[in-house]
């Protein structure tokens, strides 16, 4: 908690790292043919080294937002600009293909391959990213799963499986980390432990990240900036800068103060 170790939130002047510029996305129901506008001329910027949390009720397009950035969905209009480590930009827009940064993604479910060991799961992500698979052991040790590396995911607890998913996301040395309701499928105590673990990993090696959650407390605890989203089409209802140094304590009254502000904005 002392000032020397604490990392400050990145300066507001840091370069834009992820930019959604006038993005539109319409879903057409395959059954009814009904068109639903999820995003219309939507703009959002995540600066380098910043962890931005997007909070909103379900159905506000949070997950779609994450899918757009991850390249799992293509925008219908507008463009998504992604900077890489050297500051070069990759542009994703309709018809421009799907340039992708090296991503680490933690989904709500661990999404591990059940038929191979935990270690092998991490190794596959490493080799696919062109990295040395030997890094898997270290990544698993960092999340406290060293002893479980050679087990099948199915023998691990839910929390352990999600730890493995976190290890995989950090192991690939991602330019961008995407967190999609990462701890909402876990019990409260496990979720709290994993949030602390995530903070620890983040403090050790800060990256740029986008966290999508419906939990205002999680957003206030983890993020540098919190964006409250309103749905259909999505628009930014409110924005908060958390501005607290890391490591933070989940009991810090200032976190609760931020949490209350976010709650009020969610209304």
């Amino acid at each position: 908690m002392n000032g020397a170790e604490a990392t400050q939130a990145p300066a507001a002047g840091a370069q834009p790292y992820v930019v959604l510029d006038g993005v539109g996305k319409v879903f057409t129901s395959t059954r009814t043919g009904e068109r639903e506008t999820v995003f219309e001329d939507f703009t959002l910027t995540v600066r380098q080294g910043e962890l931005v949390a997007v909070v909103g009720a379900s159905g506000t397009g949070k997950t779609t937002l994450l899918h757009l950035v991850a390249g799992l969905e293509e925008p219908d209009s507008g463009e998504i600009r992604l900077a890489d480590g050297t500051g070069r930009q990759r542009i994703r827009s309709p018809g421009a293909g799907s340039a992708r940064n090296r991503l680490g993604v933690v989904f709500q479910q661990p999404r591990l391959l059940d038929w191979i060991s935990v270690r092998r799961n991490v190794e596959l992500a490493l080799t696919s990213a062109g990295l040395d698979p030997a890094g898997a052991a270290r990544a698993l040790a960092d999340v406290g799963l060293a002893e479980y590396a050679d087990r099948y995911p199915s023998v691990l607890s839910g929390g352990q499986r999600q730890r493995a998913a976190v290890a995989r996301a950090f192991a690939v040395e991602p330019e961008l980390i995407l967190l999609d309701e990462p701890f909402s499928a876990l019990d409260q105590l496990t979720a709290r432990r994993l949030r602390l673990l995530l903070q620890e990993l983040w403090t050790a090696r800060p990256r740029t990240g986008l966290l999508v959650t419906h939990n205002p407390l999680e957003a206030a605890f983890l993020a540098d900036r919190v964006i409250v989203l309103d749905g259909r089409p999505a628009r930014v209802r409110a924005e908060f800068t958390v501005g607290l140094p890391r490591p933070r304590s989940p009991e810090d009254p200032q976190i609760f103060a931020r949490h209350n502000e976010i709650l009020a904005a969610l209304g």
Partner: peptide, 23 residues
């Protein structure tokens, strides 16, 4: 869900076939 995972971690066609599709 696993197909999305394979996509974001950029599994090659071969890796997907061997570790995702066949199992």
């Amino acid at each position: 869900a696993l197909r999305e995972m394979a996509h974001v971690y950029r599994f090659s066609v071969w890796t997907s076939l061997r570790y995702l599709w066949l199992p």
